[in-house]
């Protein structure tokens, strides 16, 4: 099962490598990883998606909590939450495809943020399945380059992840 773990950690050098190292050291998988400072500049927030059964996720959570730099760990998938991934895709946009790509982008409520003589850059935000569907909906258009931010997530309602 896919899980989203949100980790608050000290904004210290080496903290990120300890988290990433844990995953490779213990054979856990990271599907996506997103990390940035928070409004408290002593803390970073890291969101990672991984897969595993309950036992495995429990171990991952315990080991994350053991890392001295880690302040808090929450499994967002345990409750109601919102998740977003951002996609930037550079597409060949020539001839008939130029209109076709624009139409598809509109349908998915994406934005064309760069227009070249023969290319578009499309920006799209949403849960990962929406981004995946968009990429497959581009159909015959030639995808030149794709970059994704990795999932960022937050719990719905009153629940907050702070110290």
């Amino acid at each position: 099962m896919r899980r989203i773990l949100s980790v608050l950690m000290e904004n210290e050098p080496g903290a990120l490598s300890r988290v990433v190292g844990l995953f490779s050291q213990r054979g856990y998988n990271i599907e996506s990883l997103n990390v940035a400072p928070t409004t408290d500049n002593t803390l970073s927030r890291l969101t990672l998606t991984t897969t595993g059964d309950d036992l495995k996720i429990e171990q991952i959570t315990k080991h994350l909590n053991k890392i001295v730099d880690v302040v808090k760990v929450v499994d967002l998938t345990e409750g109601a939450h919102v998740e977003r991934d951002m996609l930037l895709v550079k597409v060949r946009a020539e001839g008939a495809q130029r209109d076709e790509v624009k139409r598809t982008t509109d349908i998915f409520r994406g934005q064309i943020i760069d227009v070249g003589p023969a290319t578009y850059i499309v920006q799209l935000t949403g849960p990962i399945d929406k981004l995946d569907s968009f990429l497959s909906a581009l159909g015959e258009a030639e995808i030149l380059e794709v970059v994704r931010s990795g999932v960022a997530g937050i719990a719905r309602g009153e629940k907050v992840l702070t110290i």
Binding site: P13, G14, S17, R18, Q25
Partner: peptide, 16 residues
């Protein structure tokens, strides 16, 4: 050293 020892220490510090 901090990198090499990372998987085999409880914690490490690089003094700055």
């Amino acid at each position: 050293m901090v990198g090499i020892s990372r998987p085999i220490v409880k914690h490490s510090f690089m003094v700055q």
